[in-house]
Amino acid sequence: MRALLRALLLMTLLLCTSAALAQAIEPLPFKDHAEEVRYQHLTAQLRCPMCQNETLADSNAPIARDLRNQIFQLMQHGQTDAQIKQYLVDRYSEFVLYDPPVARNTWLLWFGPLLILLVGAAAVVATIRKRSRSVTPSMSAATPTALDEGDDW
């Protein structure tokens, strides 16, 4: 009798813990696979405002969970991805977008690397021109000391 009671108690405990575990995962009631894929794709493009190196999809912060739920609700209301992104930008600024839009204040971010590349290319061209000018006459003179000048580093 006592053994039976113990088994029953154990079973109830196990049931309780599995219920708690299921609750912690919080499965969302997607209507089909396409919707789930869209949701995963969208939350992976958005940044958690709290843990700033994680996407909303990855983050376990309470706010990320709330925002994921909110995104799911907005999807149920038929909002497009662009509308949902705008909804979050209106509240949390463009910070939430991992892919910042090309705008006046992001020009430096988008085209800065190109600018640096151009400056570097200009420097290379200038150096090559300078060297070829200083080397050619010395080549004709064929003096070894003049040859060294160009390559000290």
Binding site: P49, M50, P62, I63, D66, L67, Q70, R91, Y92, S93
Partner: peptide, 12 residues
């Protein structure tokens, strides 16, 4: 619930 806080852009 923290629902209204989303409209305020509260995250922490």
């Amino acid at each position: 619930s923290g629902q209204t806080a989303i409209d305020f852009g509260v995250y922490a």
